[in-house]
Design a protein around this nucleic acid. Structure first.
Lengths: 195, 195
DNA sequence: GTCTATAGGGAGATAGAC
DNA sequence: GTCTATCTCCCTATAGAC
């Protein structure tokens, strides 16, 4: 929660770690940096986590938990399927920019995780992907074998925002979510200039 | 070019480095690993490159060069603008999966590059992005402030394929390029199941 | 739950012979 | 252009006191 509290506890360490992993990646981050950000000494990290890899796995886990929670919180809004998709796109973007550094760390660092860590996370990750497949099946009418591909393209668009979107800039997260959703469903051609 | 040649030379080292950076990221890759893959000793790397960062910058440079070359090679095909976009999407995917490891290394590792390296590369990268903005302006009719955003979404979709697409799987690169282009231009809703 | 002290290893890089 | 040998630094992790 804080960077300088006297006893940050497990969660404080976890959050400082996630922030570093986002900024530098896993390998480039040292336990000493995480400790310094947390306001404790490096050796104290090992009271909360057995190893740096263990800490990394905990960050990835929390990243998924935040995503799944946000997805479930959108709930079964009884609107059109297009608006339901928009709500979930907005929620996913929210996890990247508004709900702490965990999901961002997951998205940017998962790919570079050591194989053992990655295998440990995959089952949880699958649950989130299944939720999206179900959602998309209710929204678009593509062939069954195309649907996971379209989901991956949408994920690619959404997750790439972590590399370039500035939540304090001209475009708001709401606007970005609307743009991504409309582009995904109706295509870039539908966005006529003469609006 | 080869992993075990007696004198791999600068290019062999560069290629081995790119492969490692794709697989492990920059920080997790050691100069000793690159040397071993190249068939030389670690100290010999420093005959070709002043430092590991220097080698990294050379890999990123080459990654852009490959992208720009592929873009230019598509040329001014006098087809419809949709088909021209398809050709460029196919060319970009080709740089990720068919033209060596340099572009893949650029896409996956650029974000984690040390600030000095990144700043050195940005101007070259800008040239590639300008080419795409120009291409998209001829293809879609979106508002001027939306166009760069739409390009970033398309880049996000295309570049994410490096994390999940298997060029030896069921779907070919040609099919993937067609799917991405059609989804980008016309949206996922246009892909009706009853085809 | 945090500290000091330190073990043990591997990293990037250099010197100088061939 | 590549080698062997080595420097120096900093990494993860442990031991044991408070």
């Amino acid at each position: 929660m804080s960077l300088t509290a006297e006893a940050p506890g497990r969660h404080g360490v976890l959050e400082a770690a996630a922030r570093r992993f986002v900024a530098q990646g896993y390998a480039a981050t040292t336990v000493r940096q995480i400790a310094e950000d947390s306001g404790i000494k490096a050796a104290s990290i090992y009271h909360h986590f057995a190893s740096k890899e263990d800490l990394f796995a905990a960050v990835l886990d929390e990243g998924i938990r935040v995503m799944v929670d946000a997805f479930e919180e959108v709930g079964l809004v009884a609107q059109s399927s297009d608006l339901r998709l928009l709500a979930h796109v907005r929620a996913h973007l929210g996890t990247l920019f508004e709900h702490g550094p965990f999901t961002a760390a997951h998205v940017t660092a998962f790919f570079t995780a050591p194989a053992e860590v990655r295998e440990r996370i995959v089952p949880v990750r699958d649950g989130y992907e299944r939720r999206w497949n179900r959602l998309l099946r209710e929204t678009i009418d593509a062939a069954n074998r195309e649907l996971p591909l379209l989901r991956l393209l949408l994920f690619g668009s959404m997750n790439s925002t972590i590399e370039w979107f500035d939540p304090d800039g001209e475009t708001s997260l709401d606007q970005l979510a609307a743009l991504i959703t409309d582009q995904f469903l109706n295509g870039a051609k539908s966005r006529k200039k003469g609006a």
